[in-house]
Amino acid sequence: MEARAAYYRGQANRLTDRARSAESKVDRTKNMVLYYLKARNLRKIEGQEFTLRLQKNSQDFLVVLDEPQIPLIFRDIETKIPGHLWEALLSYLSDEARRELNACVRQMKPSADAIKRAAADQEEVPGAAIQRGVHLRVA
Rank of each mutant, 00 (worst) to 15 (best):
M1R: 15
M1T: 12
E2R: 15
E2S: 14
A3R: 15
A3I: 08
Y7D: 06
Y8H: 06
G10C: 00
L15N: 05
L15C: 01
T16Q: 15
D17G: 12
A19D: 10
R20I: 13
S21N: 14
S21T: 14
S24D: 15
S24C: 13
K25P: 04
D27P: 02
K30H: 13
M32N: 10
K38F: 09
R40N: 12
R40S: 05
N41T: 07
R43A: 10
K44M: 11
K44H: 08
K44L: 08
I45V: 04
I45E: 01
E46G: 07
G47T: 03
T51C: 04
R53G: 00
Q55E: 14
K56S: 12
K56D: 14
K56E: 15
S58A: 09
D60Y: 10
F61I: 05
L62C: 00
V63W: 01
V64K: 05
D66Y: 07
D66P: 06
E67I: 00
P68G: 01
P68W: 02
Q69M: 14
I70R: 01
I70K: 02
P71F: 00
P71G: 00
L72N: 10
L72F: 13
I73M: 14
I73H: 13
F74V: 04
I77E: 05
E78L: 12
T79D: 00
T79N: 10
P82M: 07
G83K: 14
L85A: 02
E87G: 03
L89G: 09
S91W: 09
L93A: 06
S94D: 07
D95L: 06
D95W: 07
D95I: 04
D95H: 09
R98W: 09
R99H: 11
E100K: 05
E100T: 01
L101A: 05
L101V: 01
L101D: 01
A103G: 07
C104E: 05
V105F: 02
R106C: 14
R106Q: 15
Q107A: 12
M108Y: 04
M108I: 09
K109Q: 13
K109L: 07
K109C: 03
P110R: 05
S111M: 03
A112M: 08
A114Y: 06
I115V: 03
K116I: 04
A119S: 12
A119Y: 05
E123K: 15
G127T: 03
A129F: 02
I130H: 03
R132H: 08
R132N: 06
V134K: 12
H135G: 10
H135R: 14
R137M: 10
A139Y: 12
